[in-house]
Design a protein around this nucleic acid. Structure first.
Lengths: 364, 364
DNA sequence: TTGTACGCGTTATCAC
DNA sequence: GTGATAACGCGTACAA
């Protein structure tokens, strides 16, 4: 060992991480041996293997995923794209994805399209350039065609859509059964004895809102009720939109005694307006929302709502991805996972039980 | 051009993306030329450059970031770790980071520690293995020391902490001035004429709550008010915690006429309890929360709260990272960015203005 | 069981 | 202004 040298400039220089070559040199064996020991290959002596692992730990060996990925042609990176990460829904889905991915040894590259197709296109390019192992995406609102996804399948990169999906294509997807959710919500109102049920509908060019409206109609006809067009008001699903829509409903000759809103914010708006007009909820008008946002437990009374299984959706999306990997991503694959929604009954729609506990209460 | 061949098994095989070598072969030049043309190198003929770019577009050239990163020893990946992605705060910060990063050509690898040091340690290893260009992290609640971050600085990887920071170290960080936020909140209550102000304090081993408590005390003494220990109640900042704490305050011989809560959920709990006891807000008790969560605009009355500048924090964190990169990540660097909070005054604390618009109203 | 040799796609360093 | 070559760190047929 050399004599004490003047310390090298306070270790100002960055230190290169220990590579396989370092281990090989130190141990006097070839890199192949190192590689095999580390990857638990079968043709490796137990003693050498132990020696390698021990030295790796001692020297703080740090694998270079980039190099491995370059060699194998595919990384352990998973691309995830959402319209935006803010807000409960996508944050929860991403949480679900990340948790599952991390457990399986994947890292998540997260990107946002900001509801912009151009950005979505750029993100896809970036993800492909990063040699991701797969791409999970919820398309932006302005996405109308699949062209920029063609390259993804061409390269054999597993592609899974979740929540927001374009229809009429051979795709793998995970979606919520919105129609069923709306059906449950409406049937619940019917079970409470309401016969005149209004619907605050969302923009009908979006699948989710179209399906929710259909579920509402299904429930009505299952009870032999003829839908009344004047009880269906389309709005933008904002709080203000809900207020306006509710005000409009109250001007009817025969106002409804129940409202099913396709979104929680609009439901809140409706609730605010009802209270401001002195209409009691649920006694005079029962109310159900959709999405099970946090606000449903803050509003007074608490708002009954349909839960979207955000986290399960994330898990399911990742799981579908792994299935595609195992199946060799057969190009003609088309797998659809449909999650079943869950109704949480709360005070805003429970007639005769006005002060129910805010505890989650899953209905069948 | 060859005669029509039997189509190759319905293109079942994955297609390798076009590489620089492909362009070189097609154009009859060397790869060096291609590389230079694509990276806008100075010693390159304008005509050849145009030809290369044109062909690249035509053949749909797709750069391989992995290979570039391997060669250069550092990628365009940015590691971001948060305790969890759910909830408004971290989602917004990540949104801010991702937006800024994407603009600067970086991709974000997002991971969660789930408030677990061990997971945090593993994530750091993973990020380093991915050769990230830098790491932005908000430490988990169970993190007590910096050991697992030592390797990061050793390797010269820029490291930025945001929001949750360990103290007493040479670190780069972006934090909110919690003390100032609490000061603003309390001073606002004083300005409303309240002299007996209680404080719902959070767990005092966490910096943010300690600082908020201090800001509260500062404001009191700036008005020559002697703090009353019985008016300071520590709770877990949950809705239920807020209810319990508020109930306790109401049992005092001289209950307060104002409450500053270190969190919005606890403020909501306090509000609920006050209403259930028939105490009017703000007339009998004025109320201010902290974090400016969505619930503040849902509660009735809307709750005055301190905004944490989530998105700005994300932007600032990324900006700090880029500064470190440009400065060559000088090992002894220590930069602190302190964001100024903003008070949003709402009905819960405005005496004489009970039905103020829910619009955001930034106070000085 | 272990070692040799090569290639993954890109960039930096020379030489021309 | 352009080209040949080496190197980044790792995985894997193939040979020993």
């Amino acid at each position: 060992m050399a004599a004490r040298r003047p310390r090298p400039a306070a270790s100002a220089e960055a230190v290169r991480p220990v590579s396989m070559a370092d281990l090989a040199r130190e141990l006097g064996v070839s890199m192949t041996t190192i590689s095999r020991a580390l990857s638990d290959h079968h043709s490796i002596g137990p003693s050498t293997k132990q020696a390698v692992l021990k030295l790796a730990k001692k020297l703080n060996y740090q694998p270079n995923h980039l190099a491995a990925a370059l060699r194998k042609g595919r990384s352990k990176l998973l691309g995830v794209m959402v319209p935006y990460i803010e807000g409960r829904f996508f944050a929860s889905v991403v949480h679900g994805i990340e948790t599952a991915a991390s457990r399986a040894g994947y890292s998540v590259i997260m990107c946002q399209s900001n509801e912009d197709v151009a950005q979505e296109r750029r993100n896809i390019e970036t993800l492909l350039s990063a040699q991701v192992a797969g791409i999970l995406v919820s398309v932006s609102r302005t996405t109308l065609d699949f062209r920029h996804f063609e390259k993804v399948r061409k390269q054999g990169v597993p592609l899974v859509f979740f929540d927001r999906v374009l229809e009429g294509e051979n795709i793998n997807s995970v979606v919520l059964n919105d129609q069923q959710g709306a059906f449950l919500a409406t049937r619940h109102l019917l079970a409470q004895g309401c016969r005149s049920i209004a619907h605050l509908a969302g923009p009908q060019h979006l699948n989710i809102y179209k399906n929710r409206r259909q579920g509402y109609l299904d429930a009505l006809s299952s009870s032999d009720i003829t839908p009344n067009e004047s009880l269906i008001v389309e709005c933008d699903m904002s709080v203000e939109g809900g207020q306006t829509a509710m005000a409009q409903l109250l001007t009817l000759p025969n106002p409804p005694n129940a409202v099913f809103s396709a979104g929680d914010s609009a439901a809140l708006g409706a609730l605010q307006l009802l209270k401001s007009r002195g209409v009691r909820v649920p006694q005079d008008v029962a109310l159900v929302g959709f999405s099970n946002e946090a606000l449903t437990l803050v509003a007074e009374p608490n708002i009954t709502s349909v839960d979207q299984r955000c986290e399960e959706m994330g898990q399911a999306a990742f799981r579908l991805f792994t299935e595609l990997v195992e199946a060799g991503n057969a190009p003609i694959s088309q797998r659809q996972v449909v999650l079943q929604p869950q109704l949480f009954e709360r005070a805003s729609s429970l007639l005769g039980v006005t002060d129910k506990s805010p505890e989650a209460n899953p209905a069948a």
